[in-house]
């Protein structure tokens, strides 16, 4: 049997919760190979589940530690990481939860997981200064004309049929935990103007504006693009306040 296949058998045996260890292993002093193989199996299960628990604290809070541990173990077995960068692990966790039968009674759970995933992305994304209302207000018309704006690299958003912002805030300890009187959908804006990730409500028209801002545009072009969906005046100021916009270019040229 080529060595390549031996590695693969070893790895697959680690992911099988109760299977036998692969052949060819020995343990000193007549100790059981299975007992020692279980040390590795435990490390894999525990550390990868912990990585998910760190990335999805509010999902964990919503379902409780035992439920989360079971869901995480099932996900690890079904979809082990494909990269050593564990900050990227869990990109598929929300979709997994949507198909995880024990979570069927919690239809809002996948969107809460999607929101937490966006917060992890934001946390690790490229640094950039956020444009401010004051920064724009201080510009002369000559300075403002060639300036272009774009989505800040750490800005993300999620439009949900579930009250994801309220659910997140309550279960992260930012709001008192009270029964929700009405389950209206909410749209979330995730930003990181400096080092701390912020979660705010996405303003009306904010999703259209952020989509438009994928390409750097001048204020005049933005205004024109937003005309059919209610204009720039409603959505831009709150996006600036949240740090969702960066200055892409100035009269001096392109900025990073």
């Amino acid at each position: 049997m080529p060595a390549l296949h031996a590695d693969e058998r070893f790895a697959r045996a680690l992911l099988a919760p109760d299977g036998a260890p692969p052949p060819g292993l020995t343990a000193a002093g007549g100790d059981a190979v299975a007992r020692r193989f279980a040390i590795h199996r435990n490390t894999v299960g525990v550390t990868l589940s912990e990585a998910l628990a760190v990335a999805f604290p509010v999902v964990r809070q919503l379902v409780g530690d035992d439920f989360f541990a079971a869901a995480a173990r099932a996900f690890v077995t079904a979809a082990p990481p494909t990269s050593p960068v564990l900050a990227d692990y869990g990109a598929g966790f929300a979709d997994f939860l949507a198909r995880f039968p024990p979570a069927a009674e919690l239809p809002y759970l996948p969107d809460v997981a999607r929101l937490e995933r966006l917060m992890v992305e934001s946390y690790h994304s490229t640094d950039a200064p956020a444009e401010t209302r004051a920064g724009l207000a201080g510009l002369s018309p000559q300075e403002a004309a060639p300036l272009t704006l774009a989505r800040h690299p750490a800005a993300r958003w999620l439009c949900s049929p579930w009250p994801v912002v309220t659910l997140w805030r309550m279960n992260a300890g930012h709001l008192p935990l009270t029964p929700l009187s009405h389950w209206a959908g909410e749209s979330a804006l995730v930003t990181r103007p400096e080092l701390d990730v912020m979660l705010t409500a996405l303003p009306v028209g904010g999703d259209q504006l952020l989509s438009v801002l994928e390409t750097p545009l001048s204020l005049a072009a933005l205004s024109e693009a937003m005309e059919p969906v209610g204009g720039l005046a409603g959505a831009l100021p709150p996006l600036l306040d949240a740090g969702a916009v960066r200055r892409a270019s100035t009269p001096q040229g392109e900025q990073r």
Partner: peptide
């Protein structure tokens, strides 16, 4: 050590056989 195979990463430091072939690899 190694940590996975075929694009899979298991976040553990796994043992390897100490053979001349593996040494060369």
């Amino acid at each position: 050590a190694w940590a996975g195979h075929g694009g899979m990463f298991l976040n553990d430091l796994l043992p390897l056989p100490y053979t001349p072939e593996r040494l060369a690899t």
